[in-house]
Design a binder for these strands. Structure first.
Lengths: 207, 207
DNA sequence: GCATATTTTAAACAAATGTTTAAAATGTTT
DNA sequence: AAACATTTTAAACATTTGTTTAAAATATGC
């Protein structure tokens, strides 16, 4: 990334990542990747054996990247309220950097959910360990509305990520520039923080 | 659909719709479509001239289908609150019937937003005519929180549709059957109605 | 029932696809 | 510098792709 000289293998992987993110697996050709990396076509298979192997490697990377920050936040010794706000902020920054990521992951998982079952169940478990108990405690003590993690996560992720999933559509629809869209997305993020916290947490503590 | 004898043209279109919804444009081959329709490969081009033409026709149909019900609700002479609830209910039913629709539309629009610009701007205008003024009035009269249509729509659509966009992922993750997923989605829908209305509308009228 | 149009078929087409090959270029070791 | 391993190249490979063709099958009008 910041290296002055990048190995051919890395160059191909970077290029492939960017093309796969934009066009998806089926929409990407080996020649697309080679061209994006300014390399010979044969090198893709020389380093990664096949288009599919290369894709899997990139998919795993992106999926880990997507989950890592979330889990790191959930493991922190802070309140649920703080966790959720940090999660939204973190997720927002990530999508600002890589707006195609969520749609890419969703599409590829949708097309063939089998091929990453192991990754998914691991994520699910960590999610429960680091969040479920804490939420239950909060609910019992009457500080939080009764809700399960299974509903909470898609609620937050959905409202936040949807704006980026439809980024190109929104930009087209409102004739918006990159900056205008980012400003819009930032407002939307703040709206979601406000709505989620106000809805979830029983008042008395109004930040 | 309910016809006993379906014309070849219709059979191909039906089959193509189902395959495109599942695999997307790039992931679908002409032979996939022919096989799904149990017809000769040449017939696709005989009736629709090309794969792309067939795709456009189906895309327009699906996009109209997606917008039509929404606009119909917005044109009704009812309150904002009622409109939003009806919208969510309607949207929920639609996605129950066609769970792949939203992800399909999002993906294809994302890959090439140019090709349906006219459709989009028309939708945007109708959205504003039938909703913006009514919302502004509601806000001025202090019955509703200050929010713009541009934020309101993705807020509602996002939280609701995200569950279906990740349907296959969720089913895999929680080892859920079709019925279990639908029950989960229904709960989620009710949660969203509760959250949205409680957040948006200034109390005194607690349904 | 014959002539005409329409629909369907099997086969082929050129172009694009993922992949491999074998030689050339470059790097490394001694 | 010689011998070796590694990397890169141009070219070709076999499949798959979307599309077309020309003949066969079926339907339609008179």
């Amino acid at each position: 990334m910041t290296c002055i000289t990048q190995s051919s293998e890395e160059k191909i992987k970077e290029a492939a990542k960017s093309v796969f993110l934009k066009k998806g697996y089926a929409g990407t050709t080996a020649r697309d990747i080679a061209e994006a990396a300014s390399m010979n076509i044969a090198l893709t298979n020389y380093y990664f054996r096949s288009k599919e192997k290369l894709f899997f490697e990139i998919f795993r990377d992106l999926f880990s990247y997507y989950c890592k920050n979330t889990l790191k936040i959930f493991e922190k010794p802070i309140s649920i309220r703080e966790k959720l706000i940090e999660l939204i902020e973190e997720d927002f920054q990530m999508m600002k950097k890589e707006p195609s990521l969520v749609l890419f992951l969703m599409t590829e998982i949708h097309r063939d959910p089998e091929r990453l079952l192991p990754e998914l169940s691991r994520f699910k478990e960590l999610l429960h360990v680091t969040l479920s108990n804490q939420i239950e405690e909060e609910i019992i003590n009457g500080r939080m509305r009764n809700i399960s993690v299974e509903h909470l996560m898609p609620l937050i992720m959905g409202s936040l990520q949807f704006v980026f999933v439809g980024k190109n559509m929104n930009m087209k629809m409102y004739n918006a520039s990159e900056e205008e869209f980012n400003a819009f997305a930032e407002n939307h993020k703040n709206l979601i923080i406000s709505m989620i916290t106000e809805y979830l947490f029983i008042s008395e503590t109004v930040s």
